[in-house]
Design a protein around this nucleic acid. Structure first.
Lengths: 267, 267
DNA sequence: CGCTGGGAATATGTCGGAGTAAATAGGGAG
DNA sequence: CTCCCTATTTACTCCGACATATTCCCAGCG
């Protein structure tokens, strides 16, 4: 058994999304909570089907072959297949009904802001229109978040941002550690907004930023030193200047979009 | 068998969240696609556990009793219980690992923007701080969306908004049809932004608006006629006046927050 | 005394099959 | 031609067994 799984693992490369999803169980305790490389079978199936749907291999409205047939084709038990389907169903990608089969839902039902779905979306060739949408969302949310953060931040928030900035300086965005620090910085800002809904968006936006940043790096060398932009945001938040914080963040997002756009075109 | 499920259905009232999740497979075809009252067992379990977690009955870090024990307690098979857990896991509420058990994840991992999770959050007593967060998010996103809509809308978008407004006038917000029309209006605006990421937020924000609106009505009679506010937004978008659209939407959200806040305090 | 390594216990993960319920499609009666 | 009913197909549920992966504990060693 497990021949089927092993087959995928050759087909489906181990992307960062997995590591992203598994790690930082509790960022404070490094030795505790071993972050196993343990891949669950149904997780792998969900990943495979998820990327297939996101990439358009299965279009909305398509009906997947029956449980038995598909499970057999994938060389896994129906239980594993069904659990994978439940995951996709929970994320709004598919819906199953007796006799009718399992069909791919229309795109607007997809939970595109789910970090895992976002990872699947970027597993293949990312849709440039979708990337634009994400940056537009960033351009809306992050300046507003910076504004709130400037009004509500406390010492701990500022310390978190400062540490993240230092880490960004040490490593660069070409390394995973550097990108993690970048995420930490934006995350610290959202944390400082004292707003749970915004904080949840952070997971999504953070994932999106990570993907696009990585994508950006893939195309060519670092086009610009992003540190000064971040420092300006930090200074404004530290000074409690809401308008300046929003403006500085606005500039930062615009520049990031510019870089990403040119990188994608150059490809 | 099924005695267990029947037990829940008495415990867990049929909330709107279910209907919300199941219906409008395709809003155009009313007779087609029967929106069955068919409740899946694992869905009911997920609902039960989801509300329990969201209400704080299980705190982050808590470990659920083992699969066999819990499944037996719920009078369902392990398969059904496992599928429910996969759903919760997909939404970031819990994580399971061999030997370690299934533990509730910290709150920041929860996918609070998932429409179903949002429904669970509002199934019990909604946390006023969380409601404030949601309105703050609305206050950030919707005016920006209105701005984009004013720049990009076409005739069809305007027609959709107009129809929704008419429906809102016919029914009132005290009826489900009226609330649906309200959602349609906001949805039409987000659709007009030509932004997938924003459109996805519509599902979440729409759900949140629905819950809070319903909550508002529960407390006392309609405190204000919301139609004029909506009309102002529509007029600005139709005129292509981005700044006015953003401002009108800003006012609308502020008023809605005000109404909801006073309703919650009065309770 | 503390640290490290191995072994057993235990809970999740996976499997295969059997039987139930539901919804669609097709055929038959009015 | 319409409507209802039956029949088939498909997902849904249950069961019991085995595999796997951690964790925990204890023994052995430094």
């Amino acid at each position: 058994m497990w021949e089927g799984l092993l087959r995928f693992l050759r087909e489906v490369p181990i992307t960062v999304s997995e590591a992203n999803f598994v790690n930082d169980e509790e960022s404070a305790r490094p030795a505790d909570e071993a972050r196993g490389p343990g891949r669950r079978l149904h997780g792998a199936i969900a990943h495979k089907l998820g990327t297939a749907i996101l990439s358009g291999k299965y279009a909305p409205g398509d009906i997947l072959s029956g449980e038995v047939a598909f499970a057999e084709e994938l060389q896994v038990s129906r239980s594993a297949y069904r659990e994978a389907i439940q995951v996709l169903s929970a994320k709004g990608l598919v819906a199953s009904r007796p006799k009718a089969g399992t069909r791919v839902l229309p795109r607007e039902r997809w939970n595109l802001l789910d970090p895992e779905v976002l990872g699947w979306a970027f597993a293949g060739e990312p849709d440039i229109e979708f990337v634009r949408s994400l940056f537009e969302l960033r351009a809306i949310v992050e300046p507003a978040a910076a504004r709130l953060a400037a009004q509500r931040r406390d010492k701990n928030d500022l310390k978190a941002m400062k540490d993240a900035l230092a880490a960004m300086r040490r490593h660069t965005l070409t390394t995973e550690a550097g990108r993690a620090a970048d995420r930490d910085f934006h995350n610290a800002i959202l944390q400082a907004t004292r707003n749970d809904a915004l904080l949840v968006l952070s997971a999504s936006i953070g994932a999106a930023v990570n993907w696009t940043t990585q994508f950006k790096q893939r195309a060519r060398a670092l086009p610009r030193n992003p540190i000064p932009d971040h420092v300006r945001v930090y200074d404004a938040i530290a000074a409690g200047d809401a308008a300046a914080a929003a403006e500085a963040m606005n500039v930062l997002v615009d520049l990031a979009l510019e870089d990403t756009r040119s990188a994608m075109e150059k490809k």
